[in-house]
């Protein structure tokens, strides 16, 4: 077989594989959206769920998902940022950093149900936080921290050594170089990483089942005092998220329209995650453009 022919076959095979991946994705998306989108309505997106009757919505779950996401990000982003800056900008390669990196790697490959069970034992039981948004947010932090640290570290890595030297050569301290030169330059890529990880957190169910709980008590959306139990902002209330809701309906849902609610919820989840992904790309590109040319 001559090399030209070999090349053609290889390219053909690669196209085939790539096409297959896209096809599977499209089929999945198509199925979920086709069966879910007809269920969507304003009522579905805002009404509370019903346990036995038909006509329930996912308003509370949707709110819970976003609230939990914001809390989890608020906790994990500063820690991940600090860890990444330390690992990439300050730490030298020695056994300490090797240990940290290995730990991060193992943590990132931990099955999320294990993270959830750990969260249950530690936050829910030991620290007596109960099934609450706070427990869930901590569990999600465990789940999210290694991925976010990795992605921020990668973002820092994309900034050339010359930029660091340029900052230092101007008489900036190391810290000033990092905060005033490197971080601003890395913002587009960091932001992309954050939004993408937000998508993963948003769709996470297993880590939340035992921490944030599987019940969604009715909320009073007129009460924004975080100390009231029916306030949406109260971090100590149990909070079933959208992803957990899907899991629960499918395993033990007894409402007559369980199938429809499950399809609708799945569609909402997928649409939200797609939105995260597209926003990440768009915002990242825009920011990069703004920074690099006028």
């Amino acid at each position: 077989m001559n090399s030209k022919r070999q090349n053609k076959i290889a390219i053909g095979a690669l196209y085939g594989i790539a096409g297959l991946v896209v096809l599977i994705l499209l089929a999945l998306l198509g199925y979920i959206l086709a069966s879910g989108v007809p269920q969507l309505s304003w009522h579905f997106l805002t009404a509370p769920a019903k346990a036995f009757l038909k006509g329930g919505g996912v308003g509370v779950q949707l709110f819970n998902s976003f609230y939990l996401l914001i809390l989890a990000m608020a906790i994990s982003f500063p820690i991940a940022l600090g860890a990444a800056i330390y690992l990439y900008e300050y730490a030298r390669d020695n056994w300490v950093t090797t240990t940290i990196r290995t730990a991060i790697e193992i943590l990132s490959s931990l099955p999320s149900v294990v993270v959830g069970l750990f969260g249950f034992l530690f936050f829910v039981v030991k620290l007596r936080l109960g099934f609450s948004i706070l427990s869930g947010a901590f569990a999600l932090t465990f789940f999210n921290l290694p991925l976010l640290t990795r992605s921020i570290e990668d973002s820092l890595r994309t900034i050339n050594l010359e930029q660091r030297e340029g900052g230092l050569a101007l008489g900036l301290s190391r810290w000033e170089t990092v905060t005033r030169v490197i971080l601003p330059a890395a913002v587009p890529s960091i932001l992309t990483g954050v939004i993408l990880s937000a998508g993963r957190v948003f769709g996470e169910a297993a880590a939340l089942i035992y921490t944030a709980g599987q019940s969604a008590p009715a909320l009073n959306f007129a009460d924004w005092n975080p100390f009231n139990i029916s306030s949406p902002l109260n971090p100590m209330r149990p909070a079933e998220t959208l992803a957990v809701h899907i899991w629960k309906i499918n395993s033990e849902g007894i409402m007559p329209d369980a199938k429809a609610i499950s399809s609708g919820s799945s569609a909402v989840l997928i649409i939200a995650i797609l939105l995260f992904n597209f926003t990440a790309r768009y915002v990242g590109k825009r920011l990069y453009k703004r920074l690099t040319s006028a």
Partner: peptide
């Protein structure tokens, strides 16, 4: 830091900050 304020440096690759 003080040394590098007195002794500046220009590099082989132009390295303006992305601002």
């Amino acid at each position: 830091v003080e040394i590098r304020k007195e002794i500046g440096m220009v590099f082989q690759q132009p390295n303006p900050f992305p601002f």
